[in-house]
Amino acid sequence: MIHIDRIVEGTIVVTAVKGRLDSSSSPKLEEFLAGAPNEGTILLDFAELTYISSAGLRVVLKATKLVRGAGGTLAVCGLVPQVHEVFDVSGFSSLIPIHTSREAALATMT
């Protein structure tokens, strides 16, 4: 249902999430991101994320607060239209930097 990859691109840690992020799968991402504050700059690549529920948004919000609390930054990239709509309606678009693609994000964040 969900597949998570961790890729280090220079000083940025990319977490690529594939599948659906709902109440049953979001604990896995939450656990994965538990160590995020120590990693400085985090990029969540959602290019292959097809669905996100409020449970998924909650995990993203928690991770953002943790990273920022530790002085780091967190951004997301590659949102498909239906996930982008959720970010827009929920107000997350103004809370978290969103990049069109991983390449665009890496170019901006490095």
Partner: peptide, 15 residues
């Protein structure tokens, strides 16, 4: 009005 995203971290009624 749109609630604050912080509500997602609140109790069941807030969510």
């Amino acid at each position: 009005q749109r609630p604050s995203p912080e509500d997602l971290l609140g109790d069941a009624q807030a969510v």
